[in-house]
Simulated scan of single mutants.
Amino acid sequence: MIRVLLAEDVQMVRGALVALLDLEPDIQVVASVANGDEIFPAVMQNKPDVAVLDIDLPGMDGLSAAALIRDSVPETRTLILTSLGRPGTLRRALTARVNGFILKDAPINQLADAIRGVSVGRRVIDSQLALAAWDGDECPLTPRELEVLRLAADGANAMEIAKRLFLSVGTIRNYLTTVTMKLEARNRVDAVRIARKSGWL
């Protein structure tokens, strides 16, 4: 029996997935959570074989949770189940070394097969998305530039970002100017839009 943890913040979707997966003869959902901060404690308590994680969760996001699981409980494999089907998102997932990545609009039998594949150590990735990621543009921003843009996207101003990152306000403004130029954006808001659309944030 493959023991599964499911992290999905939309209650109706989570309930439907649990019900459908429980119909599979070899899969048992041992825990389901709605908040990213609940993932790791639930993994430690239930020791699932596979953690099926949405990316966009309240609290810790699914990719950060996957990286934490990989580093702390490597015997639990991670499968990203998301509606964020952009090449940049897949690249971020691969960087986090997840074991699988499929889209929410996939048929339930594809999800069940992905869980089975991941549980025995295979890497399972939607083939069309993998091709798109291969052909897509690389993110031109450095990790620090992405960090600054992510904080700006969350609504922090230059002074707040400077305090968070222990940098000067001038340095943060320079980063934001560089980001805007690299992304050929009109302004900071446009830069956030471009980065989100590309799956880099």
Results as ranks from 00 to 15, higher is better:
44 M>E: 14
134 W>N: 14
142 T>F: 10
40 F>Q: 12
49 D>T: 08
183 L>D: 13
200 W>I: 08
124 V>A: 09
173 R>W: 06
50 V>K: 04
126 D>C: 12
111 L>Y: 11
32 S>H: 11
108 I>K: 07
12 M>I: 15
2 I>A: 03
83 S>L: 09
158 A>C: 14
180 T>S: 00
52 V>L: 13
88 G>K: 02
82 T>E: 04
154 D>Y: 12
126 D>H: 07
166 F>T: 11
196 R>Y: 07
105 D>F: 12
24 E>M: 06
54 D>P: 01
122 R>K: 15
154 D>P: 00
76 T>D: 03
167 L>M: 15
22 D>E: 15
95 T>W: 11
149 L>V: 09
150 R>W: 11
60 M>F: 10
169 V>E: 13
137 D>I: 10
90 L>S: 08
64 S>K: 14
135 D>N: 10
60 M>A: 12
51 A>S: 13
77 R>D: 02
118 V>H: 01
140 P>G: 02
131 L>I: 13
64 S>W: 11
80 I>P: 00
110 Q>W: 02
74 P>R: 03
56 D>K: 10
69 I>K: 06
196 R>D: 10
99 N>W: 00
99 N>Y: 01
150 R>D: 15
198 S>K: 15
18 V>R: 13
144 R>L: 12
32 S>C: 05
111 L>S: 14
142 T>V: 01
91 R>M: 12
108 I>W: 08
53 L>A: 05
25 P>M: 10
37 D>F: 00
39 I>Y: 08
140 P>R: 08
40 F>I: 15
8 E>F: 04
3 R>F: 08
194 I>M: 01
86 R>Y: 05
184 E>T: 13
27 I>V: 10
158 A>S: 15
111 L>H: 12
113 D>A: 14
12 M>D: 09
119 S>R: 07
124 V>S: 13
163 K>P: 02
139 C>E: 09
199 G>H: 07
141 L>M: 02
53 L>S: 02
31 A>D: 09
153 A>M: 09
188 R>P: 04
132 A>D: 13
122 R>Y: 15
21 L>Q: 03
16 A>T: 07
150 R>E: 15
74 P>C: 05
21 L>E: 05
172 I>G: 10
115 I>Q: 10
108 I>G: 10
146 L>Q: 15
29 V>Y: 03
119 S>T: 04
195 A>C: 03
195 A>Y: 02
135 D>I: 07
40 F>Y: 14
62 G>W: 03
135 D>M: 08
84 L>R: 08
131 L>M: 11
4 V>K: 04
80 I>C: 00
155 G>V: 10
6 L>G: 13
29 V>G: 01
118 V>N: 01
112 A>F: 04
59 G>E: 07
116 R>N: 12
175 Y>K: 06
34 A>S: 13
47 K>D: 08
71 D>F: 01
96 A>E: 06
96 A>K: 07
96 A>L: 05
175 Y>F: 11
171 T>V: 11
27 I>E: 03
196 R>S: 08
155 G>Q: 11
55 I>P: 00
135 D>R: 12
172 I>T: 04
49 D>C: 02
30 V>C: 09
173 R>C: 14
34 A>Q: 09
29 V>H: 01
182 K>A: 12
2 I>G: 05
78 T>M: 08
117 G>C: 04
74 P>S: 02
48 P>L: 13
114 A>R: 08
181 M>F: 02
161 I>C: 03
147 E>I: 09
127 S>Y: 05
174 N>A: 12
69 I>S: 10
49 D>W: 06
10 V>S: 03
